[in-house]
């Protein structure tokens, strides 16, 4: 299992579009993906689940991947978050 903490950089935090980007990427991989913030953990492949997280700019989320391609998956997802979802 791989686990990484990342900080949300974009101004609006996780809203519909960033949630979509995470889910789209997560769905490209076989492994299970979980994203958590505080006490809430959601399925990283579920855009509706991701939208439930309250993750504003500056907050820290934890990404967990478990499965055969966990290394590639976590790298890809962390990159999207670190790039601020291509937003300001």
């Amino acid at each position: 299992m791989k686990e990484v903490k990342v900080t949300i950089k974009n101004k609006l935090g996780i809203h519909a579009r960033p949630a979509t980007m995470i889910a789209q990427t997560a769905n490209k991989f076989e492994c299970d993906v979980y994203v958590s913030k505080d006490d809430i953990e959601v399925n990283g492949k579920s855009v509706l689940g991701l939208m439930m997280l309250v993750a504003p700019q500056g907050s820290e989320i934890t990404i967990k991947c478990e499965g055969a391609d966990e290394d590639e998956a976590i790298k890809a997802i962390v990159k999207i978050v670190e790039d601020g979802f291509g937003e300001e």
């Binding site: 519909a16 579009r17 979509t20 769905n27 855009v47 689940g49």
Partner: peptide
């Protein structure tokens, strides 16, 4: 296009 992407991925949502 991005708006539509959001809609597509909601329809694709495995949990839903």
């Amino acid at each position: 296009k991005r708006l539509l992407d959001v809609q597509i991925s909601i329809i694709n949502d495995p949990e839903m």
